[in-house]
């Protein structure tokens, strides 16, 4: 049975999350390495205050997912494919051997800083349930206003789609979709309008940094964010990592591609179980596990059988 490891993005973080990682010397080592690289005690990364910043959230997500991945790797268990949602793609790239952990930590720190710097208050994201991509695109185009721009962003499932842009614009769209077929529509607790053209400069600056690195060829194919293809070349991974922040994440297609390629076991790295739930909803005959919910030993057992 083919398997894929999924690396979560922003939204899955919670206070104290780094205390809940598997008890393993490899995890301890990554935590210490992170602390050294960031010149910070780990506790100051995942407390309430720190997690209100995009930068710390992205750092925590990378540390949690990669350290857990290393435990699998140490036990000789590697998946057939990897995929990461938004910032999760950096963790996936580490797992695939394209980036080192240190390179990835620097990149996500920069990414977080740039995102915080680019938009002032008044921007964010929302999620709409119950309308499909076409309908939502139609509505957003119809209500578009240059001063309060809103874009359709992440396709998490055929009917769970996010919007990114100005808060005022988002509120206007939310009000409209609630009256026109959406089952639910609300603002997300995110202060950055990720995955839309407003972050073009972040993408460009990330690319400059990525170009300085010697990226390795993926050892494990990566299902990508921007065009949901299986990436097998370093350059393609670089492009996806840089571009993703100003393009929608086509998550549903990325997972659907893994399914069509034969993946029937999805294991979600910590924190959270958002991605395994989405996989479960989309495909009735897959098995999903999340380290946050399942014992890691159980995941070892399922993978080795």
């Amino acid at each position: 049975m083919k398997s894929a490891f999924l690396f979560p993005g922003q939204g899955s973080q919670y206070v104290g999350m780094l205390n809940d990682l598997p008890h393993d010397p490899v995890v301890k080592q990554i935590l210490e390495e992170s602390s050294d690289l960031l010149h910070l005690p780990i506790e100051s990364l995942h407390n309430d205050k720190a997690l209100s910043t995009t930068k710390a959230v992205q750092q925590c997500l990378l540390i949690a997912s990669v350290s857990t991945y290393k435990v699998f790797e140490k036990n000789g268990l590697t998946p057939s494919f990897v995929a990461g949602h938004s910032v999760g793609a950096f963790g996936a790239a580490v797992a695939s051997g394209v980036l080192t952990f240190e390179e990835a930590l620097k990149l996500v720190s920069l990414r977080g800083e740039l995102m915080e710097r680019t938009c002032d208050k008044g921007f964010g994201m929302a999620v709409v349930l119950g309308l499909d991509e076409d309908r939502l695109l139609e509505i957003v185009t119809q209500l578009f206003n240059v001063d309060e721009p809103v874009y359709v962003s992440n396709r998490n499932s055929p009917t769970q789609i996010t919007l990114s842009g100005s808060l005022k614009g988002l509120e206007r769209v939310l009000e409209y979709v609630k009256k026109h077929g959406a089952i639910s529509a609300h603002l997300l607790n995110v202060s950055t309008p990720s995955h839309c053209p407003l972050f073009k400069n972040v993408s460009e600056e990330l690319l400059v940094e990525l170009n300085k690195l010697d990226l390795k060829r993926p050892k494990i194919p990566i299902s990508s964010n921007v065009n949901s293809r299986l990436l097998r070349q370093a350059d393609a991974v670089k492009e996806d990592l840089a571009k993703s922040i100003c393009y929608p994440v086509r998550w549903h297609d990325a997972v659907n591609l893994l399914y069509e390629t034969g993946t029937r076991l999805f294991i979600e790295m910590p924190p959270g179980d958002v991605l395994s739930k989405l996989a479960n909803q989309a495909f009735s005959d897959v098995r999903t596990m999340a380290i946050t919910k399942n014992d890691i030993e159980d995941c070892f057992y399922v993978m080795s059988n």
Binding site: S228, R229, D253, N256, L257, E260, T261
Partner: peptide, 13 residues
């Protein structure tokens, strides 16, 4: 049907 996304991508690419 069971490979409809992948074949669409491969035709496009």
């Amino acid at each position: 049907g069971p490979q409809s996304l992948r074949i669409a991508q491969m035709i496009e690419d």
